[in-house]
């Protein structure tokens, strides 16, 4: 479903120093599977999520990103979104003055238009919003606020998963979704993510710790270091990393 081949990327020279961050990432996530990417700080995990989503701050210098067989490496962020790629941000952005539901309805319909589908009606959208909010314990009051404004770190992460439920993407990238969450919030968020699991949907879970993975039970765990995937294995690899740390991969760092 998502195939990343020999992906090299650097910080866009216009935005700073010519700094290579991804140095040949190879990763394939088939439909229906959840893959985790773990690694020490600075290994390029978050950059990978931004590059997959099409952030202008990074430039792909080599390799390819294929999504359902299509090379999406040159597509705009909104074109990737319309194809079903959803990034749950490590730091969700506050957008004052734009109500959450207004924003999401616009986003949903922009994606539908881009796919040649009919727009969702306001009543259908509201019904869906109420159902999904209930699943995540999100109050009516939270939905009325501007996007992410005034939310705690944990609430923002919950709203990211709410957005994913509303937009029903084909593929989710969760970037450090566990950071800022206490144990109870982690459980709620994990349940929300698990509700999104199905045989047609893939997920890439980027995390520093194994605790979110205890709830999500990934099919494959990859270790990233020095801008590459250096080891892949089953869920037991996450526990091994938790016990032993990332020291043994230190030599891979550039």
């Amino acid at each position: 479903m998502l195939e990343i081949k020999n992906l090299h990327a650097r910080v866009n020279p216009e935005e700073g120093a010519d700094l290579a961050i991804l140095k040949g990432v190879d990763l394939t996530v088939p439909a229906g599977e959840v893959h985790a990417v773990m690694g020490p700080n600075g290994c390029g995990k978050s950059t990978l999520s931004y590059v997959l989503a099409g952030h202008e701050g990074y430039e792909t210098t080599d390799g390819a990103i294929r999504f359902e067989g299509e090379d999406i490496g040159e597509l705009e962020p909104e074109e990737r979104a319309a194809r079903g790629l959803f990034l749950s941000f490590q730091y969700p952005v506050e957008i004052p003055g734009v109500p959450t539901l207004t924003f999401l309805k616009e986003a949903a319909n922009a994606q539908r238009r881009a796919r040649g589908e009919a727009e969702i009606s306001a009543p259908d959208f509201m019904k869906l919003a109420r159902e999904n909010a209930a699943k995540l314990g999100i109050s009516n009051d939270m939905l009325k606020r501007p996007v992410n404004v005034g939310f705690s770190g944990g609430e923002k992460k919950r709203m990211e998963i709410f957005q994913a439920l509303m937009l029903a993407p084909r593929f989710l990238i969760l970037d450090e979704t566990d950071s800022g969450l206490d144990i109870d919030a982690l459980k709620v968020v994990a349940e929300g993510v698990n509700a999104l699991r199905n045989p047609e949907r893939g997920m890439l879970v980027i995390t520093h710790y194994q605790r979110l993975l205890d709830h999500l039970k990934p099919d494959v765990v990859h270790v990233m270091a020095g801008g590459r995937i250096v080891e892949s294995g089953g869920p037991e690899l996450a526990h091994k990393l938790e016990a032993e740390g990332y020291d043994k991969y230190a030599g891979e760092a550039a």
Binding site: E76, F89, V98, Q111, Q163
Partner: peptide, 22 residues
């Protein structure tokens, strides 16, 4: 904020208009 909005599917012009409006 622009990147965030575009990641959700709004095109660049619409994201700019919405932010300016707000």
């Amino acid at each position: 904020a622009l990147f965030y909005m575009r990641q959700r599917g709004l095109d660049d012009a619409r994201a700019r208009a919405l932010l300016t409006e707000s």
